[in-house]
Write a protein that binds this DNA or RNA. Structure first.
Lengths: 233, 233
DNA sequence: CAGTGGTCTAGACCACGGA
DNA sequence: CCGTGGTCTAGACCACTGG
């Protein structure tokens, strides 16, 4: 017999089913009494497992309707806010899609073996029609080779949604590291500023189920009108 | 009768007692059965209230011992990490303590009426013995007037602890806004870099109970060896 | 050892949503 | 109307801590 709490085991089973695409985003899970019967525990124990998954942002509950798989909006994972706190939808223009050998830092970020290839997407993002972000996205070629064949014009604006829709790989969490940097020549040209202008560099690693790293994204941002905001505690 | 859930009412009562210094940090609360009896509810309902306060980081539980008021370590609210992820204790050297009329942004941050005075503390912080942060701390003079009389040499390194010990005002949460900036002449001198070097500016507002703003802190950081890291999701 | 929190059960009643 | 999740109860047994 297992010695870990029942609700943890149930949670793990449900996590595995989520990872295996057992239910699509937005779809309703079986009701609590149903799950309780299946796992042969009380409804309270199922509730505890579901509660924790809701707290993690994986599920949502609606009284009278049921418990559904969370749909991740394009906004949820974008952290640049206007000075007044309003969240704006960023537009994107993709500059280049290329396939290269992974660099050392990319291998670390994505947990790839040496010699593995990655797809790099370089794009400029606009806030309020002004170029504010020069962004390099890096994903494993093994996982997303279809992306490499794509024309730059066809790269969707909300890539996390695309991972989920096309490849069934939802982005569940992410971790950011921030530092200050200076605009390079290329960045200065695209962002319409002088070389050396201070930029906020956000290195974001996106994870799917089981902490599997999916994407490394380095965003170099003009922060004259927008700020990065930590989660409201 | 109240219509809100019982566990929320209990939580609010307990929060009020925390704010009123009913228990000191580290002290044990009454046991769950005791609280259940006092509020005339079942132990499960008390548990739920306590669980939420634990999730908020206000309490800690120890099986066999009891539930205690969380002690806030100086580390908990410092977010600059070395590239390898290790957290270092920053040392501080206070440059100046002054009393001034609050600026517009300071009044907004601390929710002060116009004409109110603030105490400003300017200091340099060291990581691994190197100057890395030029920091301006701003607090309401009404709340902390004793600080103004203090010699710069006596300003403690871990100010949050000091607020809690001396004034009974614990820092419960904070909100950060980040942007990129350029080193001014003064900053460049203290941080041993050239004027214009990119700095990471962290504007941090610290809150006590009931979202009352306590402190505004603007830290301008060299991020050559350290990064700001978002909470691990 | 007695008392604490941690887990789990089997019920109850309620508020909400959809058919 | 029925089935859903939301709240609440009163108990059980366990694992851990301290004296």
């Amino acid at each position: 017999m297992e010695k870990r709490p029942l609700y943890e085991q149930i949670k793990e089973t449900l996590l595995a089913r989520l990872a295996a695409d057992h239910w699509r985003p937005g779809e309703l899970l079986p009701s609590e009494p149903k799950l309780a019967e299946e796992f042969d525990v009380s409804q309270g124990t199922v509730r505890r497992a579901l509660d924790e998954m809701v707290a993690q942002g994986l599920l949502t509950r609606h009284q009278g309707r049921g418990t559904a798989v969370m749909e991740h909006t394009p906004f949820q994972f974008f952290d640049l806010l206007r000075a007044d706190g309003v969240r704006e939808l960023p537009e994107s223009k993709t500059l280049r899609v290329s396939v290269n050998a992974a660099s050392r830092t990319e291998r670390d970020a994505l947990e790839l073996a040496s010699g593995k290839k990655v797809i790099r997407i370089i794009r400029v993002r606009y806030l309020n029609l002004e170029p504010k972000i020069y962004e390099t996205i890096c994903v494993s070629w093994d996982l997303f080779s279809e992306l490499a064949a794509m024309d730059a014009r066809d790269v969707p604006n909300t890539i996390y949604n695309y991972y989920e829709q096309k490849f069934g790989v939802p982005v569940i969490s992410k971790r950011d590291r921030l530092r200050a940097a200076s605009a390079t020549q290329v960045e200065a040209r695209y962002l319409h500023v002088d070389v050396g202008t201070p930029l906020l560099e956000i290195e974001c690693i996106a994870y799917s189920h089981r902490q599997q790293p999916i994407e490394q994204r380095i965003s170099r941002c003009l922060t004259d009108e927008h700020n990065y905001c930590s989660a409201p505690a």
